[in-house]
């Protein structure tokens, strides 16, 4: 089941540049500048050991050479994003299809449920070694891990969404003489969309998690692989840069999903 809290995510306020939010923005900028300067200063004075914590100028240099003078980070980013997107697409499409199948034939769902629960209980990242063996060091094994995470999340959201349709709406539609086809497309599906969508949002984040996790274990490319390599060579500036990059990537993913949700579900 999708946790209830997921369904009640507060709608994000629109970014209106009122004078109040300008002040907040300025305060944030000030805080960040102060934080970075302190860090740089502490690293210079040896208060914070750059071997363990990196230093802002080093992190900046790493990002600059990776993205601007060289193109290496673009390539790694491309691998990770491609892997995550393919995992997400494949995982969620099959999950929605299975969700529809299971809600149309509930006995099938009852039969499959114990096995699905068992699979879902398994820490998926532990499957990575197996997938590496089956699908090789390349992007295939990363997609397999991503799909294995996305699938279950979107599946349970789809089933919960379709089951959650209000019985009043069904009674009304049947009294009006709606065909099963009409009931599905005019009532069941639209009422399930918000729940499915929160499943998709989570599914995309987990696809990214799965791919990066698998890359960390063994890979030829990708941000996870780069991170593991930098860590093994004690290049802390690079590690910090990649963590920052991964956080940004997650943030971007969430922002895109939020935007889509707002456009799609304006009635909520």
């Amino acid at each position: 089941m999708v946790p209830k809290a997921l369904l009640n995510l507060p709608a994000r306020p629109r970014l209106a540049l009122s004078s109040r939010s300008m002040v907040t923005l300025a305060a944030h900028a000030l805080f960040i500048v102060a934080f970075i300067s302190m860090w740089e200063f502490a690293a210079q004075r040896g208060i914070l050991d750059p071997t363990f914590f990196g230093r802002p100028s080093g992190i900046w240099n790493y990002l600059w050479t990776g993205f601007v003078t060289g193109k290496k980070l673009w390539l790694e980013l491309g691998y990770t994003v491609t892997g995550a997107l393919i995992s997400f697409a494949a995982g969620s499409v099959t999950a929605i299809a299975f969700g529809l199948l299971f809600t149309t034939y509930p006995p099938l769902h009852r039969a499959a449920e114990p096995y699905l629960t068992l699979l879902n209980a398994m820490p998926r990242i532990a499957l990575a070694p197996l997938f590496l063996l089956w699908f090789g060091l390349g992007i295939g094994s990363k997609i397999a891990v991503g799909v294995s995470l996305t699938f279950f999340i979107v599946l349970s959201a789809t089933v919960a969404g379709i089951r959650g349709v209000a019985s009043d709406h069904l009674i009304l539609s049947k009294a009006l003489g709606a065909t099963p086809h009409q009931v599905f497309f005019k009532v069941t599906l639209p009422s399930a969309v918000p729940v499915i969508f929160s499943g998709l949002r989570l599914g995309l984040i987990f696809a990214l998690l799965g791919v990066v996790g698998a890359e960390l274990i063994a890979a030829e490319h990708g941000l996870g692989q780069t991170l593991a390599y930098l860590q093994s060579t004690f290049s802390m500036d690079g590690v910090m840069a990649l963590l920052f990059l991964l956080a940004l990537l997650g943030l971007g993913v969430t922002a895109i999903m939020n935007r889509m949700e707002r456009a799609l579900l304006s009635w909520q």
Binding site: A166, D168, H169, I171, L172, K174, A175, L176, G177, A178, K186, V187, P190, S191, V193, L265, W267, Q268
Partner: peptide
Amino acid sequence: PGNPDIAYMLARDSLLPWR
């Protein structure tokens, strides 16, 4: 079911929230 001669109004409004 679906008799077009009948219009049924339930106690709750049962409006579809996405419409």
